Simulated scan of single mutants.
Amino acid sequence: MTNPPNNNTRLPGRPKRSEEELPIDQLILRIASNLFMENGYEAISLQQIAKACGVTKASIYYHFESKAQLFTASVTSMTGMARMHTKRIMEQDGPLLDRLRELAQVKLARPHGDFETIMREARASLSPEQIKTIMASEEAINDVLIHSFQQSMDQGEIRIGDPLFLAHTFYSLLMVGNREISADYNLSPTHLAHKIMDLFWHGVVPT
C-alpha cells in the first residue's frame, strides 16, 4: 500500500520553515546572498533565486528593481552582518591571538567562493555607485580589525606596523580556507584556523 504524501515535506529549493517566517525582502536577501557567494554573479539568475525562495520572479522585482541592485543589497547585508560578528569577537577581553583565532574559525566554518573573483565577475553589471557602496561595506569590516591591531600595538602586544596592511593580510590568509582548498587538506575549520593563525602570528622564521 502506498503511503499518503507528507504535506509537511519541504520541496527541494524551498526555504526552511524558519526562513519562511522572515519578511519577503529579507528572505530574498538571505537566499540570494548564499547563492551569489557560492556560485558567483553570472551563474545565478533572478528566476533561480525566486525558485529557491518559493516566490515568483515578479515578487523579486517588487522589492529589487534589478539583479545588480539585489546583488548590491545582498552583499552589503552580508558584510554588515560580518562586521557585527567581527566587532563582537574583537571587542571581547583576552589576548589578540585568541580573538583572531576565534574570528578565523567562525569565518572558515562558513566557506564560500572567492569574493574578489565574484566582484570582478559582477563589476561590469554594477553602476559606479553600487561598486562604491559594496567597497565601503567591505572596508567597514577592515576598520574593526584596524582598530584592534592599532590598540594591540599601543599596548605593546604586537610590534609596531601598518594596521591596514595587517588587516588585509589576515583576510587574504583566510581565503586559503575556502571550500575547494580546505577540502584538499581534509581539515576541520578549527584545525585550519589554527594553522592559518600560526602562520600569521609567527611567520616562517624559526623561533
Rank of each mutant, 00 (worst) to 15 (best):
E19G: 00
N39L: 09
M153Q: 13
S172Y: 08
A32F: 01
I196H: 02
E20C: 09
M37D: 03
Y62I: 02
A124G: 06
L46G: 14
S45G: 09
M197W: 03
A52L: 00
K16P: 00
A122D: 07
Y61R: 04
N178V: 01
N7M: 11
R101E: 15
P15R: 00
V75N: 04
E180I: 08
N178C: 03
R30H: 04
A68L: 03
G161H: 13
L29V: 07
I131H: 06
I49T: 09
K16A: 11
Q155R: 15
V55K: 06
N39M: 03
A167I: 02
I141A: 01
F36V: 06
I89H: 05
E129D: 15
A140M: 05
N34G: 09
T190I: 09
I49W: 00
R83N: 05
M78Y: 15
L192P: 04
F165Q: 06
Q26I: 00
H194Q: 13
P23E: 03
P23R: 05
D93I: 08
K67E: 07
G13P: 02
Q26W: 01
F165V: 10
Q105C: 14
R99H: 08
K107Y: 12
M37W: 04
Q130K: 02
E20I: 09
V106N: 11
T86K: 00
P95I: 13
G161Q: 09
R10D: 01
K107W: 08
G156L: 07
L46I: 09
T207A: 12
T207K: 14
A109L: 10
S74V: 06
A109F: 12
S74Q: 04
L103R: 07
F165Y: 10
L100T: 10
A136H: 08
L187M: 15
R120K: 15
I131Y: 02
S59C: 06
L46H: 04
F149P: 04
T133G: 00
T56L: 05
E138P: 00
F170V: 04
S18K: 10
M81P: 00
D25S: 09
A124I: 12
R83K: 15
E102N: 11
L97Y: 15
I118A: 01
G156W: 11
R14L: 07
L11F: 13
Y41M: 08
A104C: 10
S59N: 13
L103G: 01
M1E: 11
N34R: 14
S59E: 14
P111A: 07
N8C: 04
S182I: 14
A32N: 06
M175S: 12
A140K: 01
L11A: 12
L96R: 12
M84N: 08
L199W: 10
R120H: 15
E129M: 13
L29T: 03
L126C: 02
N3E: 10
S127M: 11
R83G: 00
T2N: 10
Q69L: 08
N186S: 12
H112Y: 09
R159Y: 03
V106A: 12
